[in-house]
Design a protein around this nucleic acid. Structure first.
Length: 310
RNA sequence: AGGUCUGAUGUUGGGCGA
């Protein structure tokens, strides 16, 4: 049954909700890990009711199950319910506290996030990094920087977090210092810098970073398409689009946006129509593309047909 | 009896809008 449990988790991790719940129903023996994986799948899909149902049906719960349920509430914006659950939990660990800190951060409640950080008995790199992000998100760069300097151990996420914080506050000199001081290579920070350079019009630097990537993943390919588009180089965008090994919904949307930006509405439309499926953001992009190019009737038509307007 | 490693949870990068 461990094998089935693993398969279940594979479905769960890849977001195959239907397959996961089908297999789950067919499993003769369900251990706490399978139940928790199912719970997590519903939580990530934002189906709070099913998550709660799974949580209530579990014959046994451990700290991880409780943490997943806590996340189900916080990820769907139910902070009050999350707090209630938090206080009814049999135990708290460092993950529990970090979930709470992140939830407060998402609600822009820095003081409660800091309070939780003070109250937790043990602090690891992840929660230090989360609090650093809490400061950064509120624009307290100096405090974020102090957290970065003071944390006992810095992981790659900590380095990337402070790097992006500097970039978002347009402190490019500090960002550059951090980037060159990093003790290891990391694709995430490279792509962050690539995007930052593009937004400043330094496309040559973006190209250098892209060429220097040891491994190019889907996100980095897409970031390069976007970088060219930001600098008005739609032909290069298209060339990257053609060259890359695989695409996802974001890649297509970026390419639609790139064409629309240059008012190449026919090409934009063609990319849009070749998408394997379209999410709400892709349709929003296409509506904006039509509008940008003066095709108000088509924009309106697409808009009116959308079932999932946000 | 004690320890280590194996399946599930928290923090960072690409798209519209905010």
């Amino acid at each position: 049954e461990v094998a089935q449990s693993c398969l279940m988790q594979a479905y769960a991790l890849s977001g195959h909700i239907r397959k996961a719940s089908k297999l789950f129903g067919e499993m003769p023996e369900k251990d706490v890990v399978s139940w928790t994986a199912l719970l997590k799948t519903y939580a990530e899909a934002g189906i709070l009711s099913r998550a709660r149902e799974a949580f209530d049906s579990m014959p046994k719960r451990n700290i991880i199950s409780w943490n997943c349920m806590l996340q189900a509430y916080t990820n769907t914006g139910h902070l009050c319910e999350a707090e209630t659950l938090f206080y009814s939990m049999p135990a708290w660990d460092v993950v529990t506290w970090t979930c709470l800190i992140v939830a407060y951060t998402q609600n822009r409640n820095l003081s409660k996030a800091l309070d939780a950080f003070q109250r937790m008995p043990l602090r690891d790199t992840v929660c230090w990094t989360a609090v650093m992000q809490a400061y950064a998100q509120q624009g307290y760069l100096r405090e974020a920087s102090a957290m970065f300097e003071n944390m006992p151990v810095r992981g790659s996420v900590s380095w990337n977090g402070i790097l992006v914080a500097y970039i978002e506050n347009e402190e490019f000199d500090s960002a550059n210092k951090i980037f060159t001081k990093m003790p290891f290579y990391d694709i995430v920070s490279s792509v962050s810098m690539l995007t930052a350079y593009a937004q400043c019009g330094h496309i040559l630097e973006s190209e250098k970073l892209f060429a220097g990537l040891i491994f190019k993943d889907l996100i980095s390919w897409t970031a390069m398409i976007s970088a060219y588009s930001t600098n008005g180089r739609v032909e290069e965008s298209k060339s990257v689009f053609t060259k890359m090994p695989c695409w996802d919904i974001v890649t297509y949307s970026v390419m639609v946006q790139a064409y629309a930006h240059k008012r190449h509405i026919l090409e934009a439309e063609q990319i849009f129509q070749t998408m394997p499926f379209q999410d709400v953001i892709a349709r929003n992009t296409m509506v904006a593309a039509y509008a940008h190019c003066g095709h108000m009737i088509k924009a309106r038509g697409l808009f009116d047909g959308m079932e999932d307007k946000n």
